[in-house]
Design a binder for these strands. Structure first.
Length: 271
DNA sequence: CCGGACGCCTGTCGGC
DNA sequence: TGCCGACAGGCGTCCG
């Protein structure tokens, strides 16, 4: 589910309710997420004040004085701020009960998400250490992408979805970015001109920025921290639109599998 | 090093 | 109506 725009939407939604609050209690209903929730998360957070809500790639970072909680939403996760007494649903695995009477509730039907505790420099955590640059920062530019792409035969779609190259671009926004850039998703990344790489960088930034502005993409169940869906789905140009006319030329949108993931593109506009 | 495949889970949807 | 396979927004790990 959540790619960078959805995680960022969640961060913005929960921050006003979470930042500066103290965690009264940590309720774990299901420890078995991608990695088990451990006792050190519970002891570390209980009584701690959440100083900041940050994001690195698709991880949300709840910073306290003595450690950081890393939260990942996996494919189907969402985080919401609710009155603490709200009865939990079947997939509500974790509550951080706050001193405001609200709780931050992690829901994740498929349990591909994670909730981990990290002391020390969180940026050096094994899951964050080797990540590529943020897509909306200045570090993502054509020089960098060209250098990383040089000589490689990987399809460009898999390349931009590789978190060691650039973070935050998931399956939806990879198809959307490549459509905007006019690049065929299976083109070998080492055979993309510098000029077209510049275009691709711009398109990635534009798609992600526009989606954040719309509150992210809700396909079935994504909700932001306030429980509201995102509205970018209606702005998707190719993702999920196999057989529909290309918004630019009218050619039917094609669906293929690349890197074990569904990929959508216009065979006329993308070369 | 690189590229591709797999598996972790549950829910939903389409076809028969 | 029910069953069954395919597929779904991520990503660490393993294999050749």
């Amino acid at each position: 589910m959540p790619e960078l725009p959805e995680v960022e939407t969640t961060r913005r939604g929960i921050t006003p309710h979470v930042q500066g609050r103290r965690v009264r209690e940590v309720i774990v209903r299901e420890r078995r997420l991608r990695w088990p929730i451990t006792d050190d998360l519970i002891t570390g957070l209980t009584g701690a004040r959440i100083e900041a809500v940050a994001r690195r790639a698709k991880y949300l970072l709840l910073r306290t004085a003595h450690g950081t909680a890393l939260l990942h939403l996996g494919m189907s996760g969402s985080l919401r701020v609710l009155p603490a007494a709200t009865p939990p649903g079947k997939h509500d695995h974790l509550d951080l009960v706050l001193d405001s009477g609200h709780c931050l509730r992690l829901s994740d039907p498929r349990r591909f998400g994670a909730a981990l505790w990290c002391t020390g420099d969180v940026q050096q955590h094994a899951l964050l250490r080797d990540l590529g640059p943020e897509p909306l920062g200045a570090d993502l530019d054509a020089d960098y992408l060209c250098a990383r792409a040089h000589g490689r035969k990987l399809p460009v779609k898999a390349f931009i979805m590789d978190a060691s190259v650039v973070v935050g671009v998931g399956n939806i926004y990879a198809s959307e970015s490549l459509f905007l850039a006019g690049i065929h998703p299976q083109r070998a990344v080492g055979r993309i001109s510098r000029k077209r790489m510049e275009t691709l960088v711009c398109c990635i930034k534009q798609v992600l920025t526009d989606s954040i502005a719309a509150g992210g993409t809700t396909l079935r169940d994504f909700v932001g921290g306030d429980g509201r869906p995102g509205y970018f789905a209606q702005e998707l140009r190719v993702y999920g639109r196999a057989g529909e006319p290309c918004p630019s030329c009218g050619t039917p949108i094609r669906q293929i599998i690349t890197g074990q993931r569904s990929t959508y593109y216009c065979p006329h506009c993308q070369r």
